[in-house]
Design a protein around this nucleic acid. Structure first.
Lengths: 92, 92
DNA sequence: CAAATACATAGATATTTGTCAATATATTTT
DNA sequence: AAAATATATTGACAAATATCTATGTATTTG
């Protein structure tokens, strides 16, 4: 995995609105409209953040009819943790 | 810790040049001039990134004479890992 | 003390990112 | 089939970020 890819993985966490989305998703899968209700942003802005979150691998989207259900990907989150654990272990 | 603070913690990892710096620092403490030698950026740009890394808490700077020695902060890195571990544990 | 070295800061500029309004697309509801 | 709903995309704009050159500030070296 090159540095660009690693950086994009961490982009999930480096915006305050995305942190809020992730915290909401900790409670379990939610559709975009439900996330939107609790946030002070417009629908296109939410859609933009969801794309970045999905690109990072930390969030997964599942389409069901007209709804998009988003949830945190255990595997995606684990990848991030593993990268940091390895950094910790490699420390001289 | 508010969302803004959390986001700034993760800013350490969301730029490819900073990822490279962190990888170099995995080998142990290095002065800025030594980091600079292996990177394709100018000295002020490096200085800019070191500031962001230190602000995030993941890197620590130690001044010795005219040199700045930088290293990865175990505590800082642990904070990041703990945040993610907790997110993983809270998952519904 | 003068020159050299290591680093930071300031200011300018280009790129990236976050945001919104408007619109498009797909699906469901009536 | 028309209206309503959920979401994505487009295009514009503002704010933040990354980068450089030039310069300033310590500190060390000769």
């Amino acid at each position: 995995m090159d540095n660009k890819k690693i950086a994009s993985m961490f982009k999930a966490f480096c915006d305050e609105n995305r942190i809020q989305i992730l915290e909401l998703l900790q409670g379990g899968e939610r559709c975009a409209c439900s996330l939107l209700e609790e946030m002070q942003i417009t629908q296109p802005t939410l859609s933009h953040h969801m794309k970045i979150l999905c690109d990072s691998g930390v969030v997964i989207g599942r389409k069901e009819g007209k709804w998009m259900h988003y949830s945190i990907s255990k595997d995606g989150l684990e990848n991030v943790i593993n990268y940091l654990d390895e950094m910790m272990n490699e420390l001289k």
